[in-house]
Write a protein that binds this DNA or RNA. Sequence first.
RNA 1: GUCCCCAUCGUCUAGCGGUCUAGGACAUCACCCUUUCACGGUGAAGACCGGGGUUCGAGUCCCCGUGGGGACGCCA
Length: 475
Amino acid sequence: MTDPIVTRFAPSPTGFLHIGGARTALFNWLYARGRGGKMLLRIEDTDRERSTKAAIDAILDGLDWLGLHWDGETVYQFSRVARHREIAERMLAEGKAYRCFCTPEELAQMREKAKAEGKTRLYDGRWRDRDPSEAPAGQPYAIRLKAPLSGETVVEDQVQGRVTWQNENLDDFVLLRSDGTPTYMLAVVVDDHDMAVTHIIRGDDHLNNGARQTQIYQALGWTIPVMSHIPLIHGPDGSKLSKRHGALGVDAYRAMGYLPAAMRNYLVRLGWSHGDQEVFSTEEMIAAFDLPQIGRSPARFDFAKLESLSGHYMRTSPDADLLAAIDGLLPHLANGTDIAAKLTPPIRSQILAAMPDLKERAKTLVELIDAASFIWSGRPLALDDKATALLTPEARGLIREVTQALETVEPWTPAATEQAVRSYAETKGTKLGTVAQPLRAALTGRATSPGIFNVLTVLGRQESLARLRDQASAS
RNA sequence: GUCCCCAUCGUCUAGCGGUCUAGGACAUCACCCUUUCACGGUGAAGACCGGGGUUCGAGUCCCCGUGGGGACGCCA
């Protein structure tokens, strides 16, 4: 029996969960779920200066919203420093690492020199073979890996293929800082090993780290996890994602009204494909996802496609789910509290009644809420510019007459009101649109809305007639 | 600068030597449907970065160039 698959998502809590991190989490989650494995969560909070509680909360909240649930307890890397130190000491004792007494100034000089000479190896290894007895007394030291000087280090990457580095280009990097805290490079290896991680899936900005970490695994004699470095996501203009375009926290996407399912679907197709399939249910995604199908070139973030996918999920979601999604979204909206207060039980059932018509034309929950707002907007109804333009004196005259025709309609159903309006238009010798648009403006305050007869039905006889009379008499 | 990675329509991508006069999706543009807006339907326009090889045959393999990206910290 082979070992169970264990993946992990390991964000550093120095900011929100951005779109790239969300996709990395999704890939890890899909890979584990599809193979009966586990996805672990490890918060890489060893940078005490920059790690914040707020960032941790944002990451957890973001994963939760996306529906990417991890297995087991969340591991906080900082809590494991003693273990990291233990391994560093062990490597020192075994001669796999050594003490380096260089000062920051010396290091800065070395770096400059190396750059000037066009060398990749920044540290010159000056303490590599020196006897510790030569160390200046009381001088703090860092522990560096005694990396191989020749030969090559290879990462057999599932997405990048076989990637090779000449060891002469890799220097003796620091494992344990002079203040006794572990570096990221050491901590990751020790934690992944201790957490029995079998597959590392992360952004390809870590590809070079993959080589360094491989050297640590080799020094320790540990099994190297299968690595997959996925390409980064770029902004619409091809540049690195910045706050100007796509680098928003996932909470921003929630606030824009995207459904988590749409988000997952959009994200999974960024860099990964399964033939010509564009739409994937979560189950399909889990079943089809695999590492070799991930592309190696960076993808650009495209709101238009996200939007389109979002519309698809809006249309295909059950009505009640969408209402629940609105409830979930309201707390995250600026005017959410005001709207929430208006959603009384009767209003909610009106929304539900209108939902089949509403969801057909909304791309996001925000649009859905906006399109539904005519239901709870009280009289006198505010008119937007287009609606105002529609309500010419002639149009108001039409409304007056149609209202009279409508007053006798019984029962108040879409078919019956349509009957009445159509026959009115016929006797007037005008097209249905000529009377439907003014009705729409008077009823919803907008120039666009669901089908006008459904609007009449959702609003009910009393409210409909009242809104019509408001506009018939006004001028 | 050095190291590493990448390169098919505007965008996401299919393509794993011949079935490619290169397929799908989003976006765009027509037309149809139609009470508005969407949806839906039909159709159009739109790509293999350049140059060398290898091969009977290259979008597919190799090399060089060019262009992107990433990494070069006692950050993660």
